[in-house]
Design a protein around this nucleic acid. Structure first.
Lengths: 196, 196
DNA sequence: TTGAGACTAACAAACGTTAGTTAGTCGAGG
DNA sequence: CCTCGACTAACTAACGTTTGTTAGTCTCAA
């Protein structure tokens, strides 16, 4: 269907260039039709963006919860690290991740409300994935008995920091930085009396 | 001087709206002259942006090193925390911070190289500020005897993460997150045998 | 035969930029 | 002391291009 292709191609362009810098001509080219033909499928440019936004939100939440189930029967360390790794890779490499970051970071003014709404929904999905792991970690004595919120916050900050840095360092340096940051994060959350 | 006023007003507009969405008409209006008069002071729009970029880079580095000297005779914890706090506050509140965030995170393609260059220069200035503190911390036994690089990396990641998150959360939630992330970072780098 | 979906042609508005002009300032030479 | 010429910095008018959008037409499948 052409309509879905418009959404798919627009997603890529919005992710790469942002909303304002992506023209209907760009989109039409990518889809392989002429610019006015877009109006057979959407009322205007804004409608295209909103369609993309909803599409991404839905897929993102699905992906997140799927991944979390994959590491269910492992140690706390492994489960946390898996979420961390998967989420980071996803945000760094996927078009959805890039789109998501761009749109939440510098939202086109017109869509500020819808975007914030989507962001909070996705974050909530993320939280429901992490919380059980951290709770179990505290209970088992693997993690320091800090507040659930504190541990979750620090986890987010770690991921967000590395996401940003991914833009600026070449792969080698970045790997190194990722390793160091994770190790120190783990030292920060791990209960010192826990050994194994 | 008109030229400096153009830079100042452009900085505000670029910070608020980004490069592409800021038109020469916007800038001219803010300065209080007509659009073509801008060409008496700059060759083109790109030249205006580059002037703003250099201006910001310079001021940013100056501010950074100034602030570091302020806490010279304090404990390792205080010195590190001061750098961290000052840097984040600055990024949150100042127009320069917003501009810096915007251009480093989603650089206008044309200026990708210059921007990367500026980012690395600012980071280098930051490194010369932090390294002595960390080295002293290891020597005195306050910090874990990890590699200098590892500790520095983790510090950057912490700052970068919060730097990014400033956009997502309202002030209250952010303060909370900042506190939690710092505490856990400190637990991660502090030598467990050090007490005081 | 009707409707969906492509097309061409054209629109006004906004974009960055150039050309040409004018008024004011400043220093050097007669 | 005055004046000429260069310079600065503002202006109006217009350029060609691109923007999002609309109107009207053609085609093909149901």
């Amino acid at each position: 269907m052409t309509q879905q292709k418009i959404i798919d191609e627009s997603l890529i362009l919005f992710a790469q260039q942002g909303y304002e810098s992506t023209s209907l001509a760009n989109i039409a080219d990518a889809v392989g039709i002429k610019k006015p033909s877009l109006y057979n499928h959407f009322d205007n440019k804004e409608a295209i963006f909103l369609a993309v936004l909803q599409d991404v939100a839905q897929r993102e939440m699905k992906y997140l919860t799927e991944q979390a189930e994959l590491s269910a029967n492992h140690t706390i360390y492994e489960r946390l690290h898996h979420i961390y790794q998967v989420y980071l890779d996803h945000m760094a490499d996927s078009t959805e991740g890039l789109f998501f970051k761009r749109v939440t970071f510098f939202p086109p003014e017109t869509f500020a409300d819808e975007i914030k709404n989507v962001f909070l929904r996705v974050e909530e999905a993320m939280t429901t994935v992490i919380h059980p792991v951290i709770e179990a970690g505290i209970e088992e004595g693997v993690l320091r008995p800090l507040s659930l919120d504190s541990l979750t916050s620090a986890f987010y900050t770690l991921i967000d920091g590395l996401f940003l840095e991914e833009n600026f360092y070449d792969r080698e340096v970045f790997k190194q930085r990722q390793q160091a940051s994770w190790d120190i994060f783990w030292l920060g959350i791990k209960d010192p009396s826990w050994e194994e």
